[in-house]
Amino acid sequence: MIAAFGTYDAHKHPRVAVLIAGLEEHGYEVAVVNRPLGFSTAERVRMLQQPWRLPLLVLRLLACWAGLVGDAVALRRRTGRPEVVLVGYMGHFDVILARLLFPRSTVVLDHLIFAGDTASDRGATGLRVRLLSLLDRVATACADVVVTDTEEHRGMLRRPDKGVVALVGAGREWFDAGDRPRPDRLAGDPLRVVFFGLFTPLQGAPVIAEGVARALEAGVPLEVTMIGSGQDHAAVRQRLGDHASVRWRAWVEPAELPGLVASHDVCLGIFSDTPKGMRVVPNKVYQGLAAGCVVVTSDTAPQRRTLGTALELVPPADPRALAERLAELAKAERLEDARARALAGRAAVRPRAVVEPLVAALAAR
């Protein structure tokens, strides 16, 4: 039996839900031991970057941990000690508690992000980055198996031999949205393009803005939806202005997002050339594919290696290349070819497929 443990929020960060679904499809019984902390990823990173916010994090964390301890005791009374404890995404602190509560279980940490690396990507320097990097080392040392999403991230572990690479994948709700009938695209209809995210440097949103602006200025028929807010949002808004072909939404409820993305032809991934941008395959790439969209993203080693011809790859930090690719995809025949390749790539991002390396690692133990 596997216990999915921690303060994760599967609605805001569905990665753990993908892992649970995949493990269940492979025949594992999964018991959920979960007390959501209630902070978004951006809020957690902000607290780690701004020490005066930490008391709120600590108080909330301790309250959740008290509940988790009680839940863990109840679980052991009902079913005995779990063979495996899966600590969900953003479990840098939770994995320490898991190690203490389940000293004889195999502890698996889903380590999608390195705190020090993420803080550095968002502009932090010096002591804060060193402390967060120390937290990464402590967290990964507490785990028996560390799940990362790319070989590049596995290589950042102090013990890469403990690492298992499992793609992020997408939840069933994204596949359900992608399986619904899509509105017919008539001759002359604009290419429907969507971007959603936190407008962080990793995502390269200013590159998107410049690429979209160039395409629109060249007369490419586009209908663009920009969803989210964050660090680079003001610069993006300034470049695109109030263009009639661009629609802005500050927030979309998680339950609504898959259907909204699936109503578009193209989903945009990431386009930065930052060190972190060269190492990751973002959630939106997997989710866009699952939703039945053509996904345009940067041509980086992990994205090419992971999904290859299923994606429309353009050079990182190159708005002209992005504009040219959007112009190509606005042509019906080119779009249909790209869509056929994207649909063929969906199987690789289903929950059952993405957990196979983890299943193999657990079987070996």
Rank of each mutant, 00 (worst) to 15 (best):
V33G: 02
P181H: 02
I208Y: 01
S272E: 14
D179T: 02
L100P: 03
A205S: 15
A301Y: 06
A63Y: 05
N283R: 05
D121E: 14
M226Y: 04
P319V: 07
G27P: 07
E151P: 08
N34P: 07
E328D: 15
D176F: 00
A340P: 03
R77P: 01
F5K: 01
L268N: 11
R185F: 10
A21L: 01
A119P: 01
P103G: 10
A213T: 02
V165N: 06
V146P: 00
P14C: 13
A360Q: 12
Y8P: 01
A66R: 14
R341C: 06
V314F: 01
T140C: 05
G259Q: 09
I227A: 06
G171S: 11
T118A: 13
A17G: 11
D318F: 05
T41D: 12
Y286R: 06
G171P: 00
S133V: 01
A244Q: 11
S298D: 08
R180Y: 02
Y28A: 10
V359S: 05
V145R: 03
T297Y: 08
T300G: 03
R104C: 08
P51K: 00
V354S: 03
V295H: 07
A205N: 06
E25Q: 13
K12G: 14
L48H: 14
V107E: 08
G259R: 10
A31E: 10
G155C: 09
L257K: 13
G288T: 05
P181C: 02
V224C: 03
G269N: 13
M90Q: 15
I96W: 14
D337V: 10
L257S: 13
G27R: 04
F39G: 09
V107W: 04
D265K: 07
S133F: 01
S272P: 05
L101Q: 12
G171N: 01
R137N: 05
D71E: 15
L268P: 10
A72G: 09
H243G: 11
D265G: 10
A63E: 12
D242W: 06
A342N: 10
A342P: 12
A327P: 00
R35V: 13
D337W: 04
R239E: 15
S245M: 04
R78P: 02
A63C: 04
A21K: 02
A301L: 12
A250I: 05
Y286K: 02
E43A: 14
V294I: 07
T106G: 06
V285Q: 09
P103L: 06
L358D: 10
G204I: 09
R350W: 02
R304W: 04
V168P: 00
